[in-house]
Structures are given as C-alpha cells and as structure tokens.
Nucleic acid binder design. Structure first.
Lengths: 154, 154
DNA sequence: ACAGTAATTGAAAATGGTTATCAATATCAA
DNA sequence: TTGATATTGATAACCATTTTCAATTACTGT
C-alpha cells in the first residue's frame, strides 16, 4: 500500500501551473529553466541561470533564459533587482512577501531581511509627500563577518 | 563703498578647488561641467548633463562628461545612483549627509528623504547578521499626488 | 615667457548586459 | 492530424558607458 499525501506543491510545480493557467505554452525549455531556478536557490543572474540550465538542456539559447526570466517577472512569479554590481538578479517570489537585501561587497553573498517597522516609517514618509507607494527597494551594502577579516581587493 | 562679504563658496567653487587640491588639472571643460551641474539641480543623468553642457561648451565630448562625472564620484564630490529607469543619475554631494529617494514612476520626479530611525534599525539588522555596513540604498517607488490623478501609460 | 612632461580632450570604436529579429520548430485546440 | 499561433535558437541590434589613441592643453621648473 502506498500512502502518498502531497503536502504542498514544489515551487517549480506552482510556477509551471501558474504559467499554463495564464495561457502560456508549456515547453521543455521553460520547464527546465523553472525547475533549475527553483532548485538553485535565490538571486541568480540570467547568465548564472543560463550556465546551470545548459547542463540539463545543452542546446538552450541565451535569449530563452532572458525571455523566461522576463516572463516570470512580468507574471509576478519572480522578482528582479538590479544590484550595484551591474547586473540584474532574479529570485522566485514566494507568496508575495516582500523582502530586502544585505549584500556583502567582499564575497557577493546576499542575505534577505524584512522589517515591518521600516515599512511603516516608509509609508509615513511617503504620505508626508503625498505619494502612493507601489514598490520599494532597500539594500544594505557592507562586509560579512568573514570578509571583515580578509584583506580587500584593490 | 562696496561691501562684499563672501559668506560661503558656491558648490561649483567648492568642487573646483577640491579637485585642483587633489592634483587634478583645471580645464575649461571640467569647469563648465561642474558649474552647470551645480546650477542645474540634482539627479542628472550623464546624457542630461551632456545636453546642458553642450550649450555652453559646444565642442564637448560625451566621454568628457562621463569622465568628469566618474572623477567627481570617485573623489566623493558627487554621488551616483542607479535607478530602475535604467541609467545612472548623479548629484553633487553636500557635506557628506546621506539621503535616500522617493521616485515617482509617473513623471520621474525625485524627492529626497532622510530618516534617522530607519538608519538605526538598519544598523541593528546588519549587526544581527554580523555585517559591517559601508553603504546603503533605499528607494521608494510610487506615484506623486498629481500623477495619482492622471491615467497611467500603458 | 618657454619648454618639457604628463594629463586631458574629442572622436570613434569597443564593451557588455540585455532585447529584437526571423526563419524553423513545437505546442495546443479543434 | 492539422492548422493557427507561440516559442525557440542564432545572431544582429541596442544602448549606456568605457576605452583607445593621437592631438591638444595645463602645469612645473627654469
């Protein structure tokens, strides 16, 4: 007897079904991209994702990765942020909760944070200037504990 | 009788003297760029500044504007920020005080803000992750009051 | 004032991340 | 299965920014 209780769908499944639900076609390439993206963890650049996907899908084109990333982004399934290092990084958005980033300028490590207090102050500031907030971006740059102990690149 | 008390130097003078003090040469082009930058107000992109400078200095090259902007930036006399609209904007830094931005996605208007409370929380968050903060960036995107009343571009 | 030296300039080409083009191919609905 | 339409991969185009390089200019010491 097999008991198979599906507690919750994986990110990849959730994204895939969300895409097909929106009228987009399911393709082998998109499946690979989404699955690998979900498995790889957060904050990938298009190039990093391309390199990973190429292992599973050797013929994949650069443009397809970019297109899929934009598709996910426009569908609200992924979120893109431009960091100071010059290129755009993406992360699958889990359940709409917004978070911000602490970035180590030594090793590139990215940590997420979320702070309700800051959001509240932010709203108050916007209100003072009669702004309707649609979005925000808060990045803290610094050195992680291990990079504080290493010499910095010149 | 002429009473001419110089209360404080202009931004342009301050920047120019700071540059020559650092061993950089004073050139007509740099003077124009800095003077026009100081007079034009804040948050200019390289292209916008180039267009302005061209009126006073018709032969000016694109590269010179970029180079000067980078020079100012590296000397700490200007600050550059990459907004979501794709290109980098600069502002002359007045007295080292850091501030953040509220950007209207309708009309591009940029308002500055500064909030000590947020900075404190930020430090606490960084400390919790054992980070040494060197920098931060906080941008609030939204619609200014007048853009809230206009239809949005499709 | 003048020459020597090193920095700066303008024009144009190069760079690098990202997007558009287009013919071939794959997906989906009927 | 077939036809309409979306997607793909390769490549060219984009576009902000940077580099290159020869000509010019600013500063230093005389």
């Amino acid at each position: 007897m097999v008991i198979n209780i599906k507690l919750k769908s994986t990110s990849a499944e959730r994204v895939a079904s969300s895409l097909s639900g929106r009228g987009f076609k399911t393709t082998r390439q998109r499946d690979s991209i989404v699955r690998i993206f979900a498995a790889a963890g957060q904050h990938l650049s298009a190039e990093e994702l391309y390199e990973l996907v190429k292992k599973a899908e050797p013929g994949i084109g650069y443009a397809t990765v970019y297109r899929t990333l934009r598709l996910l982004s426009e569908s609200g399934l992924a979120h893109e942020s431009r960091f100071e290092d010059g290129f755009t990084r993406y992360e699958l958005s889990d359940s709409g909760s917004h978070h911000d980033h602490i970035i180590c300028t030594g090793c590139g490590q990215i940590i997420e944070f979320e702070n309700h207090e800051i959001e509240k102050i932010q709203q108050a500031i916007a209100r003072k200037h009669h702004f309707l907030v649609t979005n925000h971006k808060h990045e803290i740059y610094g050195l992680c504990s291990s990079c504080q102990r290493k010499p910095q690149k010149e």
